[in-house]
Design a binder for these strands. Sequence first.
DNA 1: ACCTGAACACCGTTCAAGT
DNA 2: ACCTGAACACCGTTCAAGT
Lengths: 191, 191
Amino acid sequence: MDKYHHGNLKAALLKAAFQLVGKIGSEALTLRGVARRAGVSHNAPYRHFKSKEDLVAALATEAFRQLHQFLKDAMASTDPAGRLGAAARAYLRFGLANRARFHVMFHSAFDRASYPEYVAAYRDVLSLLSEMMHARGDLNPKEIAIGEELIWASVHGITELGIAQRLRYGKVEELEELVDVAVASLLRGLT
Amino acid sequence: MDKYHHGNLKAALLKAAFQLVGKIGSEALTLRGVARRAGVSHNAPYRHFKSKEDLVAALATEAFRQLHQFLKDAMASTDPAGRLGAAARAYLRFGLANRARFHVMFHSAFDRASYPEYVAAYRDVLSLLSEMMHARGDLNPKEIAIGEELIWASVHGITELGIAQRLRYGKVEELEELVDVAVASLLRGLT
DNA sequence: ACCTGAACACCGTTCAAGT
DNA sequence: ACCTGAACACCGTTCAAGT
């Protein structure tokens, strides 16, 4: 109720930013717009973020944490054999359901090296893939290393092009089928 | 020499925009900056482009035409059997050599439906892939349709992540190897 | 500590005016 | 036709001031 000492402005700003980005797209996001939506003056955000870049980095970091949780949930509800496929489809669905957010995660212009928490959140997502590849037990280290890159890039590519509505097989079920075929073919191709 | 009646301002603006985008990145591109670089007043561009979006669309269209030519050249200097692989590696190399341009081609915010020449230039690039898939003669229509999407998405994904320096196998030769393995595995997986 | 209003240098876009 | 300068409503950022 104490309007002046907001207490939770940082969280409120991030929430407002997520809403705005979903509404107007990542390119149109402005710091002043975020402040407006959070009901504070246009430079109140500077108490919590030292620049617009800083806010965007926090947004991308938080989004990677959400993706991490989403993938873990999808993996937990599947037996080990189907886990990789389930995670890949979950990656796709997360992107399709959060288009602008996905854009912020991968295409915002901030300098990644300056944001170690971003790098950590990002690494956590990729670690899930690495764990699954190791858990299979049928691949040697070199195959695992190449397989991770190939599978990630393919699923990511399908997600990017699906989000941009650039694929003829553009419905969610069709895109999931593409993901399944890609993962299966690439795994077979490794050995 | 006639400085006033420029005659070729549209081409000069596009050239300046390409240079600028390569220098400062696609996100930082401004219409006023382009005009400045072309040596004209900040609203001279409005004689040739009705908005910034319009200029960006023209930029993306021209970039797709360049990619089309680049792919055709790569294909022409390879025998039919290796053509698909050569084109895929060329796609990758084009992206790596023109990072900001690639970003404009795929991630600018203009409304594609309003720019038919963009759609045409884009389709021309994808037609090359379609032709190559048909020319193989070992695939049925459904396999071709799915194969096109899979191969394009995978090569595109490797290119996107390679450009963003997000892959451990990040050197050009390593990325080309990933492209080769992806294309071969996906083709084998189709049948 | 947290927030505000005024100010600065930018930006996209429009308009009236110049050749 | 093609180009310019002034103007408007924005933006990110800084600063001095308020509680």
